[in-house]
């Protein structure tokens, strides 16, 4: 396959960026999207040019490092992570636009790499359980109803890639935050911090400069792990419950 790539190039956080056009040839339809970019970078290095910087790590769809907006869609046309997107989703002769995640809470570091530590700080605000760690406890010691376990697991699938933020026209991190809140709030282990967790994480989300939810549903469409839009509804419910309880204390 022969492709024309239009890639966002930006030297550093302070520099102005622009789209640059590159031609790549000899792309196999079995390559992953990242392997295609590797091919481009090898050519750029041979020519003595600066390779395109992009985030990647596990390349098996579980770490949440890869983050590209491909033809205007976070992670591209398939509902998966960029690393699991294959070139068979494109045709010979296609022009592909590749841009970084766009949100003021995700400043561009270089080219296609953005700083997503705002999501880490949301986790630090309450996305954990304060309990003695040590050896894994006996699984049957704390019974969890099956529907609750399923609900928690569905939300635990979030890999924190930030595609929801990239897809949202308001740059909101509601789907990410709701996945984390719902995952822990439904479980008995998460119960002691149920109220502070949601209040603190939402407050941190606001402090980081993420936008609010206008329920366009773009986040859930982009999510490679299929976190549903109704997660946000569940978090709103948790937040209202916590705000009422906090007021009584």
């Amino acid at each position: 396959m022969k492709l024309t790539l239009r890639v966002w190039r930006q030297k550093n956080a302070d520099a102005d960026g622009a789209m640059s056009t590159y031609e790549v040839d000899g792309i196999s339809s079995d390559m992953s999207f990242l392997e295609m970019l590797d091919t481009l970078n090898e050519e750029l290095i041979l020519k003595g040019e600066d390779p395109v910087a992009f985030d990647h790590d596990c390349r098996e769809g579980i770490c949440g490092a890869c983050s590209l907006v491909i033809n205007g869609e976070a992670h591209g046309p398939e509902r998966t992570t960029t690393c699991q997107l294959h070139m068979r989703s494109f045709k010979d002769g296609d022009t592909i636009d590749i841009e970084p995640w766009r949100a003021s809470a995700f400043p561009v570091i270089k080219d296609l790499v953005v700083d997503r530590s705002a999501l880490d700080r949301i986790i630090q605000a309450g996305g954990y359980i304060t309990a003695p760690t040590g050896a894994a406890p006996e699984a049957h010691a704390t019974p969890v109803p099956k529907p609750d376990a399923d609900f928690a697991f569905e939300h635990a699938e979030c890999i924190g890639c930030g595609a929801c933020v990239a897809a949202c026209p308001n740059g909101a991190a509601m789907l990410f935050t709701s996945a984390k809140v719902n995952h822990l709030n439904v479980l008995p282990q998460g119960a002691p911090e149920r109220e502070t967790r949601v209040l603190d994480m939402v407050a941190q989300m606001d402090d980081e400069g993420f936008g609010g939810c206008t329920l366009t549903g773009e986040c859930a469409t982009a999510c490679p792990k299929g976190i549903p839009l109704v997660s946000i509804t569940s978090m709103n419910k948790e937040w209202l419950r916590a705000a009422r309880k906090a007021a009584k204390r």
């Binding site: 907006v69 033809n71 205007g72 949100a103 003021s104 993420f210 936008g211 206008t214 366009t216």
Partner: peptide, 27 residues
Amino acid sequence: LSRRDIKARPDKYVHKKPRASYATRTM
């Protein structure tokens, strides 16, 4: 809320794609 939303997404994508429903966009 709108001011916050607009500030949170200052840079638009170069590649535009059809967005949410008409009712959602015209709120």
